[in-house]
């Protein structure tokens, strides 16, 4: 937590774009990810990919 409380926030946003906009509005250094479900959302493929890591 040393990297968080009392330090300048630098945020990566995964998900709803509206949260990215709220953070931006507050002057936060934030980057939105053009996120897609991993392995096209295929659960079995995700498990296989995880094992490969």
């Amino acid at each position: 937590m040393k990297k968080l409380l009392g330090k300048k926030l630098k945020v990566i946003d995964l998900g709803l774009e509206s949260f990215h906009d709220s953070l931006k509005e507050q002057g936060v250094d934030v980057l939105h990810v053009d996120w897609r479900p991993p392995a096209g959302g295929n659960k079995r493929l995700m498990e296989i990919l995880k094992k490969l890591k």
Binding site: K3, L4, K7, L9, K10, V11, I12, D13, L14, G15, L16, F19, H20, L23, D29, V30, L31, V33, W35, P37
Partner: peptide, 16 residues
């Protein structure tokens, strides 16, 4: 994203 925003300290997650 980390390459583009080095020193990021928080991930805000609202995906499924």
């Amino acid at each position: 994203a980390l390459d583009q925003l080095p020193g990021a300290n928080l991930v805000h997650i609202s995906i499924s």
